[in-house]
Design a protein around this nucleic acid. Structure first.
Length: 771
DNA sequence: TTTGCGCGGGTTTTT
DNA sequence: CCCGCGCAAA
């Protein structure tokens, strides 16, 4: 058994253990993926049918990689393994067996936006105050209940919950939950929590179905077990009830998803549920230097709530953790980027060797700007992902509605898109008719002439006919997902509308939609393992459960610096890691401390961040940070004091870059652009306005403090700017073609010709505002 | 029915 | 700062 070579004692034990419950406590960098892979291969080598193995991972990508690694050892059989995230695997099961609960196999999946939008409508319909019943709050309460497996009826009848809701001044929560659940059901839709909740219900109420899967999955393995919630745990517990072959791998020190119901108790209490469980601890770290491992240990030691283990390493001592103090968030960006640049030069490293980790997505901005200035390629994982973009969600809503006409949220999105003159009033009328007649909205609009006459009935009929034609095409089976999708994109008028929009934003939208169509083409041409059909429905399913880590790079160039939140970095490792934004209230997050009073989870998050580094770890904090347009003073994070000081040193030889935003060279006026979203940059939650430097060779506005009200005359500016050279910090260069100044509010609309990347474009009607 | 504007509120992490 | 909402005007 060559695959046991090179494994240490506990690793081998874990690989060889086949039957009976097994818990592997795997410290950071202790080779748990390897153990899981080999264990899977070992089972198959010993005669277990791959069909009988279920492996739940945290991302689909991780599952894919693991499948490949197993394939290398045991060959083609690996294709038959069931692997994926909880959500994707159980969505698949619900497609097969959801009919027992009254769902059809083409149920829609509501994302968080859909759920909140539905909640908003329900709150509105019931005449409740939407400032009290905030969509976010209501959603979180419902989600929390579902994750604890509390259904709507139980919720409404539970006196403790009611008392809590009343105390929170939300007495109608029970009703809202009921209506929300009913509306989702009527829409033949499940939200993320439902995928787990309904699987539990399915297994609870339909023993025959449970029995089928219990017999199918003889071996159940769960990766990142510390991040499962009760609902997920109960599913795997039920599945492995008969075989007792449950193997979980996790690290309580890396549990960072309590906010979505993950319970560290799952791992702490597992031994109670499985008295004869074998526990194996993997404590040797193969990833990081001694300094990094020990610094991480010194942090996590402060937590009370944890299992005992000692992570150690036999790697070299390595350098100390360096700490950088920056004057501002922008300077932080410049210092880190410069450091990356110099490390690349001095050590001959590649971009992929570096990662910048931060607490919140919005922090990416300063690093994007500075990396771009140094011509260092980067990629951002997470943030507003591709599939969250408006135009993408719009087109996906068309697909969803084509497949499922009960999908209320998809309907709301597309009924007046592109504009057909069907507004809220008309939709409300249709909805009332549907209610009166006790039929669905789709039945009303697809037979609109029976129910309504007048100016709009024609338009509505056209819409219904359009959807019907899509439906026929999708169901005929003659066309693949790509053909159907591009037909829908064209015939719906979405593509046309975007194509006519010549603004930068419009262009990038158009390109995004093309990108979506291309990815469907790819999906059709090389479907993933385990995907049987190439129809639109299957594509939709895949897409709605994509995790942010599953995103592919936009082009073939993979040598990029990675930027992401610490949550996104789970399971990854990098040669050099920069943990940035080490400021009190930012990390540890003030929000987290207020709402959950859980400093320990933030500390575990810090632990995760530190242990991503192999060779070099650097941390930085800024003394001031731009927030809501203001410069806010910051305090260094308490976490910096918690690291044993012997592992820490202030960075030497850090070159302070010139404060280029505060002290613009003479003859420059700084302008910002509110409306413009930049194609490559619209990825963080809080994209910064594009900065535009306008060369202005007049002494009137020279200087750092420019007071628009006193010496600013619109016509004057118009003369100054037109035909001037424009340097767009993010786009490149260009020439101003036309300027419109809008009165006294210091807003200007300019049209200029410039370059984005390598393409020359006419950028039109960017709205500018002079600072 | 759409659009533009002023106002108030939020502000974390993800399937 | 950014977003969403309500209101008024086109």
């Amino acid at each position: 058994m060559n695959y046991l070579e090179g494994l240490n004692q506990p690793q081998q034990e874990a690989v060889k253990h086949s039957d009976g419950p097994l818990m592997i406590i795997a410290g950071a960098g202790s080779g748990k993926t390897r153990v899981l892979t080999y264990r899977t291969a070992h089972l198959i080598a010993n005669g277990v049918d791959p069909f009988q193995i279920l492996l739940l991972t945290f991302t689909n990508k991780a599952a894919g990689e693991m499948r490949q690694r197993v394939e290398k050892i045991i060959g083609n059989d690996a294709k038959n393994l069931w692997m994926g995230t909880f959500h994707s695997v159980f969505a698949k099961i619900l497609r097969f067996d959801g009919r027992h609960l009254g769902y059809t196999s083409d149920f829609s999946i509501y994302d968080t936006d859909d759920s909140k939008s539905l909640i908003r409508s329900i709150v509105k319909e019931r005449g409740l105050d939407d400032k009290v019943y905030k969509a976010n709050t209501v959603f979180q309460r419902i989600s929390g209940a579902k994750n604890r497996l509390i259904g709507p009826d139980e919720y409404a009848n539970n006196p403790i919950i009611s008392a809590d809701d009343t105390a929170a001044k939300l007495p109608d929560m029970g009703k809202l939950y009921k209506i929300y659940a009913l509306r989702c059901f009527q829409a033949n839709a499940m939200d993320f929590d439902d995928l787990l909740f309904n699987t539990n219900t399915l297994f609870r109420d339909h023993p025959a179905v449970l029995d089928k899967y219990q017999r199918k999955f003889k071996y159940v393995m769960v990766d990142e077990f510390q991040d499962t919630n009760i609902s997920q745990y109960l599913i795997v517990k039920k599945l492995s009830e008969i075989s007792q072959n449950l193997c979980v791998v996790g690290d309580d020190a890396q549990s960072i998803y309590a906010f979505r119901g993950a319970s560290i108790d799952n791992i702490l209490n597992l031994e109670k549920d499985y008295p004869n469980m074998t526990t194996i601890k993997l404590e040797q770290n193969y990833r990081s230097t001694q300094n990094i491992v020990e610094a991480a240990n010194s942090i996590i030691a402060k937590n009370k709530n944890q299992l005992k283990k000692t992570v150690f390493t036999e790697n070299e001592e390595g350098s100390l953790i360096e700490l950088i103090k920056a004057g501002s968030d922008n300077e932080e960006g410049r210092l880190i980027s410069t450091h990356i640049f110099e490390s690349k030069m001095n050590l001959g490293l590649r971009n992929t060797d570096f990662a910048i980790l931060y607490r919140t997505n919005s922090q990416s901005r300063a690093f994007e700007e500075s990396l771009r200035k140094l011509n260092i390629k980067y990629r951002i994982i997470g943030g507003t992902s591709f599939y969250q973009r408006r135009e993408i969600k719009d087109l996906l809503a068309y697909f969803r509605y084509t497949i499922n006409q009960n999908d209320e949220e998809a309907f709301k999105r597309i009924i007046n898109l592109p504009k057909r003159g069907i507004g809220d009033t008309t939709i409300a009328k249709i909805s009332i008719t549907a209610n009166e007649q006790q039929i669905s909205v789709w039945e009303v609009i697809s037979n609109i002439k029976q129910y309504q006459t007048g100016r709009l009935s024609e338009t509505i009929e056209n819409f219904a006919d359009l959807i019907k034609s899509f439906k026929i095409m999708a169901e005929s089976g003659k066309k693949d997902a790509y053909e159907v999708a591009s037909h829908i994109a064209k015939s719906s008028g979405l593509l046309k509308e975007l194509h006519e929009d010549k603004t930068v934003e419009g262009l990038s939208r158009y390109e995004n939609v093309q990108g979506l169509l291309n990815s469907i083409k790819e999906f059709v041409d090389n479907p993933d393992e385990g995907v049987e059909d190439k129809n639109l429905n299957t594509f939709l399913q895949t897409v709605s459960l994509m995790t942010t880590a599953d995103q592919d790079d936009p082009d073939g160039d993979n040598d990029r610096v990675t930027m992401m939140t610490i949550h996104g970095a789970k399971g990854l490792e990098f040669n050099h890691v920069y943990v940035v934004g080490m400021e009190e209230d930012l990390f540890p997050s003030q929000m987290m401390l207020q709402s959950r009073a859980d400093l320990e989870e933030e500390r575990r998050l810090f632990y995760v961040a530190i242990t991503r580094a192999e060779k070099k770890l650097m941390m930085s904090y800024a003394e001031t940070r731009y927030q809501w347009g203001r410069l806010k003073p910051c305090e260094p994070s308490r976490f910096l004091d918690e690291i044993d000081p012997k592992y820490l040193q202030f960075a030497k030889n850090i070159r302070r870059a010139v404060e280029d935003t505060a002290k613009l060279p003479q003859g420059f006026v700084r302008m910002t652009n509110r409306e413009q979203k930049i194609p490559d940059f619209g990825t963080s939650n809080n994209p910064t306005p594009a900065n535009i430097l306008i060369q202005r060779p007049r002494p009137a506005v020279v200087g750092n403090t420019y007071k628009p009200s006193a010496d600013f005359a619109p016509s004057d500016t118009k003369n100054l700017i037109e035909n001037d050279r424009v340097e767009h910090l993010k786009f490149g260069f260009g020439k101003v073609k036309k300027i419109d100044i809008n009165g006294t509010d210091r807003k200007a609309t300019i049209q200029f010709e410039g370059t984005i990347g390598e393409k020359t474009l006419l950028l039109s009607f960017a709205k500018l505002r002079i600072l």
